[in-house]
Design a protein around this nucleic acid. Structure first.
Lengths: 244, 244
DNA sequence: CGATGTGAAGACTTTCACAGCA
DNA sequence: TGCTGTGAAAGTCTTCACATCG
């Protein structure tokens, strides 16, 4: 048994189904396909072609086919994909067959909004707890969940087997929050603070940053403005107002 | 004048500074560098090497140098980059030399949180207005701004020269909101709804989707869980609980 | 016939490695 | 000497184009 080659070891390590490695770019699109497919299924659509799906997802049909091919050959040539089955397969691949409890750190403006917003529980991410440093916040109730002191973090994570933490603290406290989450055993973090977190290898962090998004948009706006004013210069209308 | 070659035309079109095309991947990192550089500057740091910046941004130093090289040659060999000057250059490139007014569509949970959250105005994106369909919401005040009826959108956009719209409606209303924004003259949209928007060419959309982020995290969690259980199987501890 | 699944080409991004300059 | 700026190599992602199969 110990003499097996690494190839054989891989086989042994994945006995149930051959676990393909799915490219990051594909993983980030699967939730979008899933959302569309679910909506179509609810609207009574039972089968879709890659072209149909691509149209609704705003991407190229070849990309859809390649993305779906990483899951396996679940389409039917000449026909398309069975919506219900594809929904099942994507949910399986994304690990959506059971709920994932999340814990929110920070009960300020954002933390309250996130907890109050039904979006978490509805989508299979029930809020196992909210914690905050401030004694003023502790024991207030937001979104039906009582805010608890930071010290309870470890206990919440253990009790509900939480693996996803959400950082909704001010940026200055975000790294500390991340450290606490990691120490409590959380291995995935959704970070709403405007800082780059440093976490140990094996912990996944995703950042959602309003400022970054807005700045990317202003970059494009500014390019458009520059292009427009250059065009005006060329056609000799340099005096015209930009707001016209 | 009309006989110039396309190369000459390009020169004419960009008379002030040669406008390089900056890769998307770089544009999405510039805001992060900017945030770090600004913080360092405020902490009294006046010069940084690509390695310093890379460390804080969690990326490779070569990537930092290549990214910054798209702005121009603003470093000093053997020394590094002058923080203040780099801040200026990045702000210039991102179009952050003036404020960009934004208009928020949807005064529900999220819209209120966004308006109430100081993050917009503080970072150079003052809220020019919030609109909502519901008469219940109209005339309430959130974040110091009075909610106005949908019909006022056009007027708000024109009055404050708004080019960025934020969609904070339920998903079912998001496409309609986008259409209204585009018709009102907005050319950049930040979409918080879980739907893919269809907009005319020339309009930039960025999507922030909590569900997508969480599903990407659960994908990774699920992989980790699968890997761990395979390892246990190999080492003959299949009966062990996953929460250990 | 018509749509999938996929090699191969092309585009974009990251990383390496080192020439070049302060 | 030390760090930038950048060609070139490597890696990743997208798109094409068509063999394949229901």
């Amino acid at each position: 048994m110990k003499t097996c080659t690494s190839l054989l070891l891989f086989e042994v390590m994945s006995p149930h189904r051959t676990r393909r490695r799915i490219p990051d770019a594909t993983v980030s699109r699967l939730p979008i396909y899933l959302q569309i497919l679910t909506a179509q299924f609810e609207a009574g659509v039972s089968s879709m072609s890659s072209e149909d799906l691509a149209g609704l997802a705003g991407v190229n049909a070849a990309k859809v086919r390649k993305d779906l091919s990483y899951l396996g050959s679940y389409g039917t040539r000449g026909v398309g994909y069975e919506v219900q089955y594809l929904v099942y397969q994507i949910r399986h691949e994304l690990g959506l067959e059971h709920d994932w409890h999340v814990v929110i750190v920070g009960a300020g403006n954002l933390g309250q909004a996130l907890a109050g917003y039904g979006g978490f529980a509805d989508r299979g991410y029930p809020v196992a707890g909210i914690v905050d440093v401030s004694p003023d916040k502790v024991d207030t109730v937001v979104g039906g969940v009582r805010v608890r002191p930071l010290e309870d973090l470890h206990q919440i994570v253990s009790a509900k087997n939480v693996s996803i933490g959400v950082i909704a603290t001010p940026s200055s406290a975000a790294q500390e929050a991340a450290d606490l989450l990691v120490r409590a055993g959380v291995t995935s973090i959704l970070n709403f603070a405007s800082v780059v977190l440093s976490v140990p290898l094996g912990v996944t962090v995703r950042k959602v940053d309003l400022a970054v998004e807005l700045q990317i948009l202003s970059y494009h706006e500014q390019r458009r403005a520059a292009a427009a004013s250059s065009l005006r210069a060329v056609s000799g209308e340099a005096g015209r107002s930009a707001s016209a």
